[in-house]
Amino acid sequence: MKKFTEDHEWVSVDGDIATVGITAHAAEQLGDVVFVELPDVGKSFGQKDEMAVVESVKAASDVYAPISGEIVEVNNDIVDEPAKVNDDPDGAAWFVKIKLSDASELDKLMDEAAYKEFVK
């Protein structure tokens, strides 16, 4: 099940591993993404910590960790080809995988319907 933050990240949990990306709405608002900077594997973040950077021509934005945990994998495809973030933000263009340290944090996030209402 996907959960969403007010800062336009999505998170999808499988066991204790959460996959994180930015929403299609965010990708559209940013415009053409030209640069992505991802954290090192092994680094830990608290919820809402600045974790990655995504740049379009018109904006540079921080991507926040939607939940606390340790980075176990990063998606270097989007570093090599930032355009993928525009092409498939919900799927292939995920940013990082995080090993959850506190699953209860997920309860604070929005579900898909709530997020859709939020960005309306």
């Binding site: 800062d7 336009h8 965010a26 415009g31 053409d32 021509v57 904006a59 921080d62 991507v63």
Partner: peptide
């Protein structure tokens, strides 16, 4: 993520 949506089109 933080967001600035006040931008402009960036390619022709």
């Amino acid at each position: 993520m933080s967001m600035n949506n006040q931008g402009r089109p960036s390619r022709p």
